[in-house]
Amino acid sequence: MSARRIFARPARFAAIAPYLWMVLFFLVPFGFVLKIALSQTAIAQPPYVPVFDFMGGREAITAALEQLSFDNFKLLVSDDLYILSYLRSLTVALVSTAILLLIGYPIAYGMARLPQRWQPVAMMLVIVPFWTSFLIRIYAWINILQHDGLLNTVLLKLHLVSAPLVWLSTDSAMYIGIVYSYLPFMILPLYATLAKMDVSLLEAAADLGASPRQAFWQVTVPLSLPGVGAGALLCFIPIVGEFVIPDLLAGSDAMMIGQTLWLEFFTNKDWPVASAVAVVLLVLLVAPLLLYERLQHRQLEAR
C-alpha cells in the first residue's frame, strides 16, 4: 500500500453520487432512445407504441417486445431527406473545422508568442466570449447580417455594392455563425499546446541551421498536432449535431441532421423516427467521440 492508496479508498466513495447520477441521466436514457427508435408512431400520449407495462407481467412485456421493429431505420435509408441531412451535417462540420483551424491557429500562435505577461490577458479575452451566451452571440450576427443590417449599410456606404446583398438565410451566414461560436474551442487547446512548447527547441532548430519558416513547419507544427486534434474534435463533434445556428442563420432549403431531428420531434411529433435519427447520428459520432475521450484522458489523467 502506498500513500496514494491510503487516499484512494475514501476518494472512491466520492464517485458514488456522480456515478449513479450519470448512469441514471446519461447512460440509461440512451436505452430509451434505442427502444423508441424501434417503436411505431401512434396518436397517443406518449406518441408511440408499444409502451412497456412492467406491471403487466411477463406476457405483456413479451408482447411489447414482439412489436419492436427496424421500420424506422429502413425509412432513414430509403428516404433521401435523411441521407442528405447526414451528408450535409458532415460536410458543414468538416468545412467549418477547416476554417476554424485556419483562423484559430494564427491567433493561438500569436498568443503563445506574446511576451509572457500579456499572455494571461489574451487568454482572458478569448475566454470571455465563451462565457457570454451562445444564443446572444448568434443573435448579434442577425443584427449585422440582416437585409438592412450593419454589414449591408457599411458596404453600401463604401460603394462596394450597389444594392444590399442577401446575407441571412445563406450558407455563408451559417458558416460565419459557426466559426464565431466555436472559435474559442479551437483556440484554447491550440494555445495550450503551443504555450507549453519549450522555446529552446526552436532555438535549437535555429542553431542547427533551420530558418524560422523551416523551424515552424518542422518543429512547431508537428509538436502542436495534439492540440490541433483536440481542437478539431472539440469543434467537429458538436457541429455535426448543431441545431440553433443553421436554424437561425441558414436557408431552409437544406437541413442539417440536428434540424431534421428537431423537425421530426417537435413539428411532426414522430418520436420514433426522431429517436432513430439520433441513434444513427450517435453511431456516426462514435469514432470521433472515442478519439476525443482518449485525448481528454491523456490530457487530464496522465499526470
Partner: peptide
Amino acid sequence: FSGMLYAPLVMPEVISGLSLLL
C-alpha cells in the same frame, strides 16, 4: 465513469435533450 463524464462535453445537444426527455 470518465467516459460518461467526458462525452457530454461534445455530445450534440439534440441527442442529450431527446434522450433525457424520453
